[in-house]
Amino acid sequence: MSASVVPAEPEAEEKPRKRAPWGVIALVLLTGLALIRNGSGEFDSGPPQPETAAAAQGSASPRPSASPTGSAPASLPFSEADRVRIPMIQVDAPVTPVGLDSDGWVAAPPPDDPNLAGWFTGSVSPGEKGTAVVVGHVDNNRGPAVFYGLGALKKGNHVEVRRKDGRTAVFEVYGIEVFDKKNFPGDRVYGSTGAPELRVITCGGGFTKQNGYSGNVVVFARLTGVR
Rank of each mutant, 00 (worst) to 15 (best):
K164W: 02
A117K: 06
N140Q: 02
S102T: 04
G127N: 06
V133Q: 05
K155A: 15
V159D: 09
G130Y: 10
G127L: 10
K129W: 01
K155G: 14
H137G: 04
G127V: 04
G130E: 04
P110C: 06
G130K: 11
S125T: 00
R163K: 08
W119L: 00
L100P: 03
P110D: 14
R163P: 08
G130S: 10
Y148M: 05
R163W: 09
D113K: 14
P144F: 09
G143Y: 09
D112T: 12
V133W: 11
V159P: 02
Y148A: 10
V134N: 09
P109W: 10
G99E: 02
N141G: 11
S125Y: 13
P126G: 05
E160W: 05
V134D: 06
L150C: 07
L116W: 00
P97I: 06
G151I: 05
V98S: 01
R163Y: 06
L150M: 00
V138F: 05
G151C: 13
K154R: 14
L100W: 09
K129Q: 15
N115Y: 06
A152C: 09
V106L: 15
D139S: 13
A108H: 13
P109M: 01
T131D: 01
G99K: 12
V133M: 05
G156W: 01
K154Y: 04
V124Q: 11
K129N: 13
A145C: 05
A152S: 15
K164I: 10
D101V: 04
V124H: 00
L116F: 08
F147L: 13
N141D: 15
A132C: 02
W105P: 00
P97K: 12
V95W: 04
L100F: 14
R163G: 02
K154I: 03
W105D: 08
